[in-house]
Write a protein that binds this DNA or RNA. Structure first.
Length: 423
DNA sequence: TCTGGGGTCCTAGGACCC
DNA sequence: TCTGGGGTCCTAGGACCC
């Protein structure tokens, strides 16, 4: 049996690269994409990284730097990014029978049994570049943790031409790389664990690879043990091809501070419609509804209020009407007058599929709220005519609390009215 | 003035059961 | 003065990821 080979493919600076495809003059210039509400930098071009801008840095702190270096900022255009992601994943699916889509811009492919892997990695890169215009890097190794690491190396060391293949290296050669990389770069080692590892004298990847998995499991957790074993080439994290979500969250910060219950009700209604659309798309039913509201965590302590409530449902459901009614009931329970709310959200949990779902044996749910025909018709119309064409009036009409997106680009690939025009 | 959103996994501790 | 033990389930909180 041939040794396992896992590839991790990841789009470089994904959101920025999407914007550059349709705006080639952005090439070579410092570009950032901002989070919702134009709050923080969530994607940075290499030029911006070179200026020292950190991931998640608030945009208002960057205004001076941006003026000085002509940094170009965009609001997040998730419609565009989701469509480009779908194209990339569809292409990557052609390169292996087993694919795990790990995030909007990353996927694992099982290349076990394939030969000439470094060249195969180059083929992947060139195909994605030619068919979508997006630049990707490829890391190949025996385990997922190693593949993440080799992808990181492919990105950081240009002489590798975007592909790093650990499977073609001796253990000695791998260790040379491991000694050059900070332990905090490892998948699963974050900002809390890295300093703790430093206390044990573990500075780079090689140090952790040589640590005892048993001792480290006792000092940390089973997660740490798996990381160490994976670094040594023993696979502990499986490739997961289809994974329905175990919970679905929809939340947003508001464009302005909100004080009125009626406005929170509108927002919660909208978020619940979004969440229940996602729920039905993965063909699940929710067992519980949570709703949460909070003020800004940067407020003075006495002006701060945070609360969340979870309401179990009498029986699993995917009905927008019932889920929204439940969420609004919960919202009224946790709402307190006199606070300036910055954010609200909903969470669907206890998700089951149609096979494991318990049906409404005692007729606890009002029929009008859960009519399958009604739900299907509404979804169908919204799919054809655009999301929100049919919605509950509780979402409101003004929506003055809606988030800010002042620098958004066009929906180049999903909206006939916003296609790219070439003069 | 302005500070994102959506997920997963693990552990500890409490409630409850026999 | 003595005051079990072991199991499951649930939740909150912490850590991580992109």
């Amino acid at each position: 049996m041939s040794r396992r080979a896992i590839a991790l493919i990841d789009v470089n600076n994904f959101y920025v690269s999407c914007e550059r495809i349709f705006n080639p003059h952005l090439e070579g210039k410092p570009v950032v994409v901002l989070s919702n509400n134009d709050g923080c930098a969530v994607a940075r071009s290499n030029e911006v990284k070179a200026l020292g801008v950190k991931m998640g840095q608030p945009w208002f702190q960057l205004k001076d730097l941006a003026r000085k270096h002509n940094i170009i900022a965009y609001s997040s255009n998730y419609t565009l990014y989701a469509d480009m992601s779908h194209r990339v994943m569809t292409i990557l699916n052609m390169f292996s029978p087993r694919q795990e889509i790990y995030s909007i811009d990353e996927c694992f492919l099982d290349l076990t049994g394939f030969s000439n892997l470094a060249q195969y990695g180059q083929d992947i890169r060139q195909t994605i570049k030619q068919w979508t215009g997006l630049p990707v890097c490829v890391g190949i190794a025996a385990t997922k943790t190693q593949a993440k690491l080799s992808n990181h190396i492919a990105k950081k060391f240009p002489q590798l031409d975007g592909v790093c293949d650990f499977t073609a290296m001796s253990a000695f050669e791998q260790d040379i790389w491991y000694k050059r990389i900070e332990v905090g770069e490892i998948w699963g080692i974050g900002r809390r664990l890295a300093p703790k590892l430093h206390q044990y004298g573990i500075q780079n990847v090689y140090d952790l690879k040589c640590a005892s998995p048993i001792i480290m499991r006792n000092k940390f957790s089973v997660v740490m043990e798996k990381i160490i074993r994976e670094l040594n080439g023993t696979s502990c994290i499986e490739l997961e091809e289809v994974t329905p979500k175990k919970e679905i969250v929809c939340s947003r910060s508001f464009g302005v501070r909100v004080t009125q219950l009626s406005e929170l009700e509108e927002a919660v209604s909208l978020y619940m419609r979004r969440a229940s659309e996602k729920l039905r798309r993965q063909r699940s039913y929710a067992g519980a509804v949570s709703v949460f509201i909070n003020t800004s965590r940067f407020n003075k302590p006495q002006e701060n209020y945070w609360n969340e409530t979870t309401i179990p449902l009498p029986t699993h459901t995917d009905s927008t009407i019932l889920l929204t009614k439940t969420a609004l009931w919960g919202l009224r329970r946790i709402y307190r007058r006199g606070f300036e709310y910055q954010k609200a959200g909903v969470r669907l949990s206890g998700l089951v599929n149609a096979q494991t779902r318990q049906t409404d044996l005692f007729g606890l749910l009002p029929k009008g709220y859960t009519s399958q025909e009604l739900i299907e018709v509404v979804d169908h119309i919204n799919h054809r005519m655009g999301t929100g064409t049919i919605r509950l009036t509780s979402e409101g009409m003004q929506q003055g609390w809606m988030m800010k997106r002042e620098k958004i680009s066009q929906e180049y690939t999903t909206n006939w009215d916003e296609l790219l025009c070439v003069p």
